[in-house]
């Protein structure tokens, strides 16, 4: 028996549920109850979360109750993200409502899920080993991530590595891949069949669109995997793709800096991060052309 997915709900019914009691979605490894009267949110969910499991409205435990609702003061012009009545962010334009939901969900995970160590990084897997790419915005991390998952890598997350400190494994948290500005067109050309959600223009990050997760990555969301590579990517105009080994102690510090909550974990957190670095090959990676980059990653030797 296969579980019902969001695709099984007609759009008008989905919109009605979103506007009232909300819909419960399994967004591995979490469950969220999502509410929103804003049409663009329903549109984004229907497009990008079609294959995610839909859970019954009654009797379901949800990790987070989230909503994106119209702001009170400027009806229909601004929207706010709510987590259970809490409003952690300033309002955004209604056109950004779906992207706001995505950012809000990230905040829920990094702010509350302290049984895991969360690290700001794009995360993919191949041959059973995980590639972790921690990087600041503007490094081309998401573009690279999208290109790799369209070329045989499994997506674990484009936004955060979830390290289970007890097992040393990375848990998949596959969610739509966030792309910005020119990257949207670049990836569209690379994969004409990729499905994109609503375009949010003029956000603080520029124009943002999300790309649907490949079915296979979602289907394998319950399979954690062992870290294998820790790579710090940097987009450098006109530069050839270049992989340079990086000192592990330095890689460790940068990994820790990109972690949202390693400080909460104390010594076990330190040991888990150290183990991750110890079993991963560490590199700096600079590139300007995606095709070259993909080739380099295809040839990455498997770590011990």
């Amino acid at each position: 028996m296969t579980a019902p997915t969001l695709a099984s709900v007609p759009r008008d019914v989905l919109r009605r549920h979103l506007g009232s009691e909300g819909v419960c979605l399994r967004i591995p490894p979490f469950t969220a109850r999502i509410r929103s009267p804003i049409p663009i949110v329903g549109e984004g969910l229907a497009t990008l979360y079609a294959e995610y499991e839909l859970l019954p409205s009654d009797g379901t435990f949800a990790d987070f109750h989230v909503a994106v609702v119209y702001g009170r003061r400027f009806p229909k012009a601004l929207c706010v993200f709510e987590m259970d009545g809490l409003r952690p962010f300033t309002p955004l334009a209604v056109g950004e409502a779906f992207a706001f939901l995505e950012w809000g969900l990230n905040w829920c995970v990094t702010g509350y899920c302290h049984t895991l160590i969360s690290i700001h990084a794009a995360v993919l897997e191949r041959h059973g080993r995980v590639l972790i790419m921690p990087a600041p915005p503007g490094s081309g991390k998401s573009t690279l991530c999208a290109a790799l998952l369209l070329n045989g890598w499994r997506l674990l997350s484009d936004e955060m590595a979830l390290l289970d400190p007890r097992t040393g494994l990375i848990l998949p948290a596959p969610r739509p891949v966030s792309l910005k500005n020119q990257s949207i067109e670049i990836i569209r050309q690379l994969a004409p069949h990729a499905i994109f959600g609503p375009l949010a223009r003029d956000t603080m990050k520029g124009t943002v669109a999300h790309m649907r997760v490949p079915s296979d990555s979602l289907a394998r969301a319950a399979e954690p995997a062992l870290p294998g590579w820790l790579i710090f990517p940097r987009y450098l105009p006109e530069s050839p793709a270049r992989l340079v080994a990086r000192a592990k102690s330095e890689g460790f510090m940068q990994l820790a800096e990109n972690s949202f909550n390693q400080n909460v974990h104390g010594r076990p957190g330190f040991e888990a991060l150290s183990d991750l670095v110890a079993r991963s090959d560490c590199y700096d990676f600079t590139y300007s052309r995606l095709a070259e980059a993909i080739e380099v990653f295809d040839r990455l030797p498997l770590p011990p």
């Binding site: 000192a247 592990k248 102690s249 104390g266 010594r267 330190f270 670095v277 110890a278």
Partner: peptide
Amino acid sequence: ALRNWPDGSVLFDEANG
């Protein structure tokens, strides 16, 4: 807690994180 690699070490102080 100390972890050593050939290129250097990292030291964690449990008292203040």
